[in-house]
Simulated scan of single mutants.
Amino acid sequence: MNKFSWYEAKSVEDALEQVNSTLSDELYEPTQKASVFKSGGIDVFDWVKEGLLKPQKIINIRNIPGLDQISYDRKEGLHIGSNVTLAEIASNPEIKSQYLALHQAVNHAATPQLRNVSTLGGNIAQRNRCWYFRSADHDCFRKGGDRCFARHSETGENENHAILDNGTCVSVHASSIATALMAFNASVVIANAEGKQKTVQMDDFFVSAGEDIAMENILQAKEIITEIILPPPSKNTKSAYIKQVARESYDWSLADVAVVMEVSGNTCKSASIVLGAAAPVPYRSVEAQQAIESKTINSDNATAAAKAAMTKARPLSKNDYKVPLFVSTIKQTILEIA
Rank of each mutant, 00 (worst) to 15 (best):
D251V: 02
K235L: 13
Y72K: 06
S82E: 09
A221L: 07
P55K: 13
L16P: 08
V36R: 10
Y283A: 03
S272D: 11
I64C: 00
K57S: 10
A15H: 07
E154K: 06
G276S: 06
S97I: 09
I70Y: 02
V84R: 00
Q98E: 14
K10Y: 03
Q18R: 06
T119R: 03
H108Y: 09
H103A: 13
P65L: 00
K33A: 13
S135Q: 08
F326H: 10
P231E: 06
K38L: 02
I242V: 12
L164W: 04
L114H: 05
H173P: 06
K222D: 15
F149P: 02
M310V: 09
A240G: 07
S270C: 07
I337Q: 11
A109G: 02
S5N: 10
S176Y: 00
W47C: 11
F141S: 02
L53R: 04
A9K: 00
G41T: 08
S5F: 06
M182Q: 14
E76P: 00
F184L: 05
A180P: 09
D46R: 03
I177F: 10
Q56N: 09
Y241V: 07
A34W: 00
D73V: 01
L53F: 09
C268D: 05
L325G: 03
V19Y: 05
S118L: 14
V245F: 07
N20D: 11
W6H: 12
E8M: 01
H173N: 10
F184Y: 15
S187P: 00
P65S: 02
D251C: 10
E94D: 14
I213C: 05
A180N: 12
M1T: 11
D204G: 05
A174P: 07
E194Y: 05
F184M: 07
L67P: 00
K222V: 08
R284A: 07
I61R: 03
P93I: 04
W47M: 15
N2Q: 11
L316C: 01
S272R: 13
Q289S: 12
E159W: 13
F205M: 08
I334L: 15
E227H: 14
L100P: 01
T311W: 00
N158H: 02
A110Q: 04
S135K: 03
N185P: 01
P280E: 11
L53C: 14
F133G: 00
S39Y: 04
S175R: 00
E8I: 01
K243C: 02
Y132D: 07
K49D: 13
